[in-house]
Write a protein that binds this DNA or RNA. Sequence first.
DNA 1: CTCTTTGCAAAGAGTTTGCAGGGTG
DNA 2: CACCCTGCAAACTCTTTGCAAAGAG
Lengths: 133, 133
Amino acid sequence: MEARKFSKKRAAILEALRATDEHPSAEMLYAGLKGRFPDLSLGTVYRNLAMFVADGDAVIVGNVAGQERYDAHTAPHAHFICSCCGAVLDVCSPSLSGLDRQVELETGGRVTARSLSFTGKCARCLGTDGRTA
Amino acid sequence: MEARKFSKKRAAILEALRATDEHPSAEMLYAGLKGRFPDLSLGTVYRNLAMFVADGDAVIVGNVAGQERYDAHTAPHAHFICSCCGAVLDVCSPSLSGLDRQVELETGGRVTARSLSFTGKCARCLGTDGRTA
DNA sequence: CTCTTTGCAAAGAGTTTGCAGGGTG
DNA sequence: CACCCTGCAAACTCTTTGCAAAGAG
């Protein structure tokens, strides 16, 4: 589609996304890179994230507290979202791809992706505020 | 928490949400009710939807094309989201609640909700544009 | 009469986009 | 040198909020 040229910023953004497991939002990445790239722009982060998703190098995990969360770990897996602190953790999910066929039969559609997420309170928040479990 | 008083508008909104299976967004509900309630305000729809969710009378299914989708069918079930037309269909999901324990053991957290959704192309869109399957 | 709900419109938050200048091949 | 990428800031979209008036109990 579009010729993609190398870019130091893009490389850094993807690297940062790959180096973390907290499924950062655009702003989180921006904040983390701002130190090394003082002239980095939020718009650039958004633009590059969109490219990663388009190229299959990243995936949108979901929307937590109004912000999209990204993940460079594109192999299908489930997530645990803490409603308390907004943390997003990876979960070793059962094989969901086996359900695709079932869903296709039921809906008559064609499944191209699936997303399984659990919401609750993470261990850290349980410890901090255990009573509210 | 707050004393909830009866309101014709609120009743109508909840009724509309319960009467449909298309998992409407706030705007969809607004558009559908505007006829019967010409003086209805979008803000009111949002406010009441938030109340439904708080009261457990509705659930946010997910964010499709930037808009939150609501469902008055609160029993846990999966959804099929058409990336083509934005339709959201119910899917008779396998019992996911059994996985809660597994996830809790793995993360050390506590699961309070789960969401399973499949993305793809619905039957209608497949028919209209079959080649791109 | 008291307290909740509503309309309207402005405010907010997150994300996208246009343009001119800088980087890459 | 041609074209992609970036910073900046304005524009956009969806959602939330404040306030005075209307409705419910």
